[in-house]
Computed example of a mutant assay.
Amino acid sequence: MKYFFLTVLYSIVITIVLMLVIAGFYLVNDGTLEIAFFQSKGAQTGLLRGIGLGIVGSYLSYSLHKAMPAEDLAWKRYFYYLLLSFIIVPIVILGMNILLFTDRSLDGIKAYVSELRWDFALFPTFTFIIIGSIFYGLFFYSSYKNKQIKKQKSIAGEATAQLETLKNQIDPHFLFNSLNVLIGLIEEDKQNAITYTKSLSSIYRYILTQKDKELTSIQEELSFARSYISLLKLRFEDGINYQEGIIEAESKEIVPLSLQLLLENCIQHNRISEENPLTISIYQEGSKLVVSNNLQEKNSPNPSTKIGLANIVDRYALLSKEEVIIEKSDTYFKVKIPIV
């Protein structure tokens, strides 16, 4: 019942709008418009026809949608709407005219039908089709936008899931590498191993607070990098040189823990000794933050989890249009990460 009343209401509104458009046309052509125009029998008949055809059109669309509910059948529904319009509208107009303009006797109906022109329902039919097409057009547009929204939500959901997976890699990756360093310290210097273990807790606390963020400030990451380098020096002492250039974008952001992963990457893949120290530099180069080290690759590198660098590349791919740049020569290895 509610659907019926809404259909009648919409039909009345649309019909009145059409009548106002026709009235405007008369006003432009004749220069005057009398109130008798709206009180005429033709105007009243037009109003009744409009309401009747509005109800018919609404239920026709409803029936087609019920018969063919699938979204991919929308164009088929529209085709049948056009086809049935040429059949249903003339029948409805004929029935309404008989009720309005005849005495509804058999002779009266025959006389009226015999005087009908072939195009008696042409204007109502095309008006019916145009209005219906507008509603179908709105439906197609709404359906298209909904598909786009669903697609974007799906992409966003997939990206979020991928990002969460990448974030969750950081904990075991850091723990794995830290334990390797701790094992080395225990073998070489037990006192430093104790100091390292105590310092490790504060470093790990930072990781736990940062790993769930999408971006963090460069200033925080640099502060962490200094602390992390100090921790590594407990084991390698003068085997590591750390240099930090002028960075003008400290207030801007990068992917959290990216510096930690890049520093680990330097340690894991290079030989480190006091005779041949590993020099790690962090500096700004345009819109990129650069982590560079002199290249002295291990002959028999430790088994790699292959997570660190790949993790950064994948996270930036999800969060930024800028790409991570990796450069390698005979003497150096550089990773340039975008500043957001």
Rank of each mutant, 00 (worst) to 15 (best):
S199K: 15
Q268E: 12
E322R: 11
A161I: 02
L200E: 02
S199G: 15
D107K: 09
L231Y: 12
D238V: 01
Y283V: 06
L222G: 13
Y3S: 14
Y59R: 01
I51R: 04
V92Y: 02
M19H: 00
Q296M: 11
E250R: 15
T45C: 00
I186L: 15
F176D: 05
I131Y: 03
I131G: 02
L234V: 06
H173M: 10
D171S: 09
L33P: 01
A193L: 05
Y81D: 01
Q44L: 15
N270S: 09
I93D: 06
K198S: 09
Y3G: 00
D30H: 07
L138G: 09
G239P: 09
I149T: 07
K190D: 15
K306P: 01
G245E: 03
S230P: 08
K321W: 06
T102M: 05
P90G: 11
S230G: 13
I149N: 06
S11L: 08
K151Y: 07
Q210I: 09
K211Q: 10
E244Q: 15
F5D: 02
L182H: 14
N29G: 12
K321Q: 11
D72E: 12
G286T: 04
N311L: 03
Q162I: 04
S230M: 12
S142A: 11
G42T: 13
E34D: 12
L215C: 00
Y26G: 02
L94A: 12
A249D: 14
S217M: 10
F101D: 06
E237I: 04
V56M: 03
S217R: 14
A156M: 05
S40M: 10
D119K: 12
G137T: 12
S142Q: 10
P256W: 09
F236T: 02
I130M: 13
V340P: 00
I186P: 07
